[in-house]
Design a protein around this nucleic acid. Structure first.
Lengths: 341, 341
DNA sequence: GATATCAACGAAAACGTTTTCGAATTTCAT
DNA sequence: ATGAAATTCGAAAACGTTTTCGTTGATATC
């Protein structure tokens, strides 16, 4: 019933706990005979080292924490998948927490993970996070921390991101290239860096093409649970207030799909009357009608890369080397579909 | 730099480690004065109990394991969300592993979790799992185990499921009620209980309505990565082989969406020429054109319930009570949309 | 035959808690 | 003053590993 311990194995074989432990770990100062004996009994008794004791002794748990704003989300679930896959390769387990876009929760969860003494932390910030003391606490305990996607520039740690500004520029430029003359933007919430950068990319593309920037056709979405509804509402509002708009760059696919739904219902033709570019390349975007032109954001890759960097830092720390921070920028790609000409 | 310990607090206050520990946990045999003193210093030193030591001592980690076939999946990610939310309420953390529908991986992961000595395990089986020795090992160590969604009837543990047979019946009956005369079925893989049950529900509905059961219009999908493509391929095949079919009950929404896409492209009118009912109610199904009639499967609820049951069993075990297994069946609902008349 | 080398093993400390049990001190009634 | 009872604290064991540093014989070297 009770899990078998080194002690039990030692007693059965009339040797010491030390020898058993060393034998199982192939220490060179144990004879082949003893090793074979120990390993055989360990197998028949189905011995599994007590992780609690190992953790206490070695001060590491081979476990990392992951905090993410939302799990039911095409992009983030791909990130999770990438992280877990890479972690498994390195023998690490992943504890996942969902911040629900709440700064308060995020703070609590960081504390939880520190108490749990995970070997490192991966985080994509909640939209509401404007203060970063909780993250600095992680750094203060010199526990490796890697931020991805939604980052805070000010925090001194490694980051894995895309070039949102460039991508926003490309999306807008595509609308311009396909003949749009008046381009609106449905941007994300005010705080997160990536929605800021996408907006800046949009603005820059306009200016570079000698098109006026008009803040009255920039709409804000919180991009939380209500993304789809926000898309519909903004589309409706846009039709009422600015029916001369012939193109929209939208901060995220789900909002774009809400907008498309609204336009479809109101008989607004896409892309003839209005062109739309989304962001993220959710699977859904390829099957909706019309299919959505969007920016492909490599979620799986991002997760994989983020864990790799975290792992590297964990190793550095184990060797008492200084941790070197890195900022990694992944490529995005414009995926042209039917919602633009 | 190094995390502060009870010992350090004790030394600073010139009291014993015992007293510090008791003070922090509000033991009745410590004076108010001492408690206040200890708690204050603990706070200023930012003391966090070493989870490794606590785990070793208490033999529990307040952590559970979750094995799931696929993370990038609308239904499963909702389940995960439900589990994590409920776990957090009870102060538990969740380690997530993805089996990738592979029996071999699933086995390894169970072993990993047992080595980690999680307090309990939640699992939805891989399609390939036909043998359950790995699960019985969990039971043998009398570690609480709860299966959900894709279960094995033969394993003696608690289960949280929907009545797939009833739901399959309802889906088929709806097609019949809306005038379909020849109804095909795109079923799931052969092994998992839920695809069997959905198929049996389909069959029973036909028989109850005096309609012939024709195995040649039952197509099989593996429902893995290629679900969407499988839907398209099966739809294409169906058009070639059985153009008299006027309704299909499809094992899962993603396959159904593949089929819809194919029908749309070939100019087959839905629901006029052919009606379609899916399964799961992915968000996508409400925005595709035509929107998909489907069975709503309560993922979040299922996750929540599964964790609740696991938690109950963990408590029972802590009190050395016998663990009582339970089978919980959640309700589904037919969501009528535009893909049926 | 004395010394050095080597192979094989074990004793013991340490990791940081929790909890039992007893000791010391104080309070209170008599 | 005496004893009983309550209050407050601490010593020590335990959880199961890992690892350092010895110790013991055996073998090799001169």
């Amino acid at each position: 019933m009770k899990p078998v311990t080194l002690k039990q194995i030692a007693e059965q074989l009339n040797i010491s706990v030390t020898t058993v432990s060393k034998a199982l770990k192939d220490y060179p100062d144990i004879s082949k005979k003893t090793k074979a004996m120990v390993k055989e009994l360990a197998k028949t008794l189905n011995y599994k080292p007590n992780a609690f004791a190992v953790n206490l002794r070695t001060k590491e748990s081979k476990t990392v924490g992951l905090i993410i704003p939302e799990i039911v989300h095409h992009f983030f679930s791909n990130v999770i998948k990438g992280i877990i896959a890479q972690a498994e390769k390195k023998g690490y387990l992943v504890i996942i927490l969902q911040s629900n876009e709440s700064y308060e929760l995020e703070k609590k969860q960081i504390d939880l993970l520190l108490r749990q003494r995970v070997d490192g932390i991966l985080i994509s910030l909640a939209n509401g996070s404007a203060e970063f003391h909780h993250l600095n606490e992680v750094m203060a305990q010199d526990k490796p921390l890697v931020m991805f996607d939604k980052i805070a520039k000010i925090v001194q740690c490694s980051k894995v991101i895309i070039d949102d500004r460039k991508a926003g520029y490309a999306a807008t430029q595509h609308l311009i290239d396909t003949g749009c003359k008046r381009i609106a933007h449905f941007r994300g919430a005010l705080l997160p860096q990536n929605s800021i950068d996408r907006f800046l990319g949009y603005k820059k593309a306009l200016l570079d093409n000698n098109m006026p920037y008009d803040p009255s056709i920039v709409y804000i979405c919180q991009c939380g649970d209500r993304s789809f509804e926000e898309g519909r509402e903004n589309a409706k509002q846009l039709l009422m207030d600015h029916d001369d708009v012939d193109g929209i760059f939208i901060n995220t696919d789900l909002v774009a799909i809400g907008a498309i739904t609204e336009f479809n219902e109101q008989g607004v033709k896409i892309p003839e009357d209005i062109s739309i570019v989304g962001f993220s390349n959710w699977f859904m975007s390829s099957v909706i009608s019309p299919s959505l032109t969007t920016i492909d954001q490599p979620g799986y890759e991002m997760g994989k890369t983020a864990f790799k960097q975290l792992y590297k830092e964990i190793q550095q720390k184990k060797k008492n080397k200084a941790i070197t921070h890195k900022q990694i920028v992944l490529d995005t790609a414009l995926v042209k579909r039917a919602s633009t000409k």
